[in-house]
Simulated assay, not measured.
Amino acid sequence: MLSKRTAKRATFVAASAAFAAVLVTQPAFAAQADAYYHGTHAAVDNNPGSGSAGWVWVYGSTESGATGGAIKYELWDGTSGQLDANRGTTNSAGTGSDIKRFQACTNFYIDGFPFQSCGSWITFG
């Protein structure tokens, strides 16, 4: 038989684990999703409440050598787009259809040529 102290600890650990799972798990219907890549922060919302079907937002990277950031996105209607933000600034736009997938990108100039590096695609549905 467990002592009262051990039983209380076990209950606390189980409750903490369940609470953490609720905080970490994001349901499929969640409104906003975020991605980070080399200092760029990108976010989308398929239920922005602004009258648009979707919303995209980007914060331009302040990583050393970066000139800014971008969010690349594809919509369920088959169109795609990219929204850029200069270093340390933000930019946002509404979309005509729900967002299907998106990724955060960081922009650089390497040897005088523009270069863009992107993180993994985050896909919905």
Rank of each mutant, 00 (worst) to 15 (best):
A33R: 15
A33H: 07
D34L: 02
A35T: 09
Y36D: 14
Y37M: 10
H38P: 05
H38N: 15
G39E: 13
G39Q: 11
T40Q: 12
T40K: 05
T40M: 02
H41G: 07
A42T: 10
A43F: 06
V44Y: 05
V44S: 07
D45K: 10
N46E: 05
N47K: 14
G49L: 06
S50T: 15
G51E: 13
A53C: 00
V56P: 03
W57M: 06
W57E: 08
W57P: 01
V58R: 02
V58S: 06
V58L: 06
Y59D: 13
Y59V: 07
G60T: 02
G60M: 01
T62A: 12
T62H: 06
T62Q: 14
G65V: 11
G65H: 14
A70W: 01
I71E: 10
I71K: 10
K72F: 05
Y73I: 06
Y73T: 07
E74D: 11
D77N: 14
D77R: 03
G78H: 12
G78Q: 11
G78K: 14
S80P: 04
G81S: 09
G81E: 05
G81R: 03
Q82L: 09
L83Q: 06
A85P: 05
A85V: 02
N86E: 12
R87F: 05
G88C: 10
G88F: 06
T89Y: 13
S92K: 05
S92L: 02
S92Y: 02
A93P: 09
T95W: 01
D98G: 08
D98S: 08
I99W: 05
K100E: 13
K100P: 05
R101Y: 01
R101W: 00
F102N: 11
F102G: 10
F102A: 14
Q103M: 10
A104W: 01
A104L: 02
C105I: 04
N107K: 10
F108C: 03
D111V: 12
G112L: 08
G112D: 11
G112V: 06
F115C: 11
Q116R: 10
G119L: 04
G119R: 03
S120T: 14
S120L: 11
